[in-house]
Amino acid sequence: MDPKLQLISIAGAAGLLLVVLELVRRRALLERYALLWLFSAVVLLVLACWRGLLERVSDVLGIAEAPNALFLLAFAAILVLLLHFSAAVSRLADQSKVLAQRLALVEERLRRVEAPREPRAAAESEPAEDHELVGAGKSRSTRIS
């Protein structure tokens, strides 16, 4: 490999490593996810520094051209990363659903508890029915809590 090219790839991998570390330092990246990126950056750095490694890996895998081994490994790594993020997004969606449900239920209960203190709201529409409803809600919440 051309030494100039090697210098450029070492600089690139080191740059990626620094960017990841800086993002962690600024708390823009959780350590949980940073580990994956740190790992990828380190692997890239090792491959850039150690020229014979890629050829050995491609020999072991039975791949004639060393760059093809790199493509294969990179593709596999990206696939795993994407799967990991899909799982993370699914978990977040689940968590936000639970939060939204809890929030909605607590809001409903809060409205019921606060309703008697605002006679204006109760008197606005259909006073008889509203009054009955408020009374029921009050007795119910006291019984539970």
């Binding site: 659903k97 939204a100 449900q101 909605a104 809001e107 409903e108 259909e126 409803l133 809600g137």
Partner: peptide, 16 residues
């Protein structure tokens, strides 16, 4: 019309 109402802050779908 006399119903209790639970309001979701955003759409959760029928299951939610």
């Amino acid at each position: 019309h006399g119903a209790r109402v639970v309001r979701h802050p955003f759409n959760l779908g029928i299951g939610g």
